[in-house]
């Protein structure tokens, strides 16, 4: 299928954002680790996916990136991890997550490289349309062009999970769905740490959103055997930005936790190290 063209047109008119602003949350969890010495690296900000929290990046990526000289941050979206808003999760919308990430960004000392996983990658793309990122990393990204196909696949493979999602239950985060290489105990432990997701946000995944005029470099990471995001969708996402996805065979959906997380992180840091300085975007 030929990829749909980018929506290059700038969107200045956002009347619903002005008239129904996202309600603030009392507390936003941002886990971070900074390199010991001074660093010229831009900050990395990581955004988790469905029912996860900042903890999934805290496990390996945040400390490892910091050891390698990167100021690393991971934010928990409202109602997730250690952030507030759990009580209102049932009426939380994707735009509230966009708000949360923008809020976390404004607390950083400079424009970050934004790393989004799964649903977090969709949020990251919506942020990239509004905010001048240094770079954008999409890990097994939920598709902007609607997850209808992915949902059909879930309906075929796991009909009860599909029906649950239809009535607003959180998609299954069982170990076999998220991981390929981990030992059973660790996989179970991570799976147990996942929480619930907003039903509206899950339903919103079916919407077809057009990709905005993103001016920063983009890296797309996929795993061929992903049980949540279909490789075809990953390819289509990458094509929308005019890039080729980088594939990590043998891994599960949670590339920041599954065996091989270090190789994925290597790729991400390599991409981030190569970015042009903010304020030196090529003239087009």
């Amino acid at each position: 299928m030929s990829p749909k063209p980018l929506r290059r047109k700038t969107v200045a008119m956002r009347p619903w954002d002005w008239s129904f602003p996202s309600p603030p949350v009392a507390h936003r969890e941002v886990l971070s680790a900074r390199p010991t010495g001074p660093t010229a690296r831009p900050p990395l900000l990581m955004v988790h996916g469905v029912a996860h929290g900042a903890w999934c990046f805290e496990e390996h990526w945040v400390p490892t990136a910091a050891e390698r000289g990167w100021p690393a941050y991971a934010v928990s979206l409202r109602g997730h991890g250690g952030s507030g808003g759990a009580r209102h999760l049932r009426r939380t919308l994707t735009r509230d997550y966009v708000h949360d990430v923008l809020q976390a960004i404004t607390e950083l000392p400079e424009p970050p490289v934004l790393i989004g996983h799964s649903l977090g990658a969709l949020v990251a793309q919506l942020v990239a349309e509004r905010y001048p990122l240094r770079g954008l990393v999409l890990l097994t990204p939920a598709p902007m062009h609607s997850a209808l196909g992915a949902l059909a696949a879930i309906a075929r493979d796991r009909p009860t999970d599909f029906l649950g999602a239809v009535v607003g239950r959180t998609l299954s985060m069982e170990p076999d769905i998220l991981f390929e290489g981990l030992d059973a105990a660790t996989a179970r432990e991570y799976s147990d740490r996942t929480g619930t997701e907003s039903p509206f946000v899950q339903w919103e995944l079916l919407l077809r959103r057009r990709v905005g005029p993103v001016r920063c470099p983009v890296l797309v990471v996929g795993v061929p055997g992903d049980r949540l995001v279909r490789p075809a969708d990953v390819r289509r996402t990458a094509a929308a930005y005019g890039v080729e996805p980088v594939w990590f065979p043998g891994m599960g959906h949670d590339v920041m936790l599954d065996t091989g997380w270090d190789r994925v992180l290597d790729t991400v840091l390599e991409f981030a190290a190569d970015l042009p300085a903010w304020g030196s975007a090529p003239l087009r």
Binding site: R28, P109, P111
Partner: peptide, 28 residues
Amino acid sequence: PDFPMPDSYPDYPSHRQVKEYFGRYADH
């Protein structure tokens, strides 16, 4: 729009908060 005021600000911030906001924008 690309640098929203902090959630901790009220609906109608004071001139001090506004100045601090511009300072943070310039720093960021």
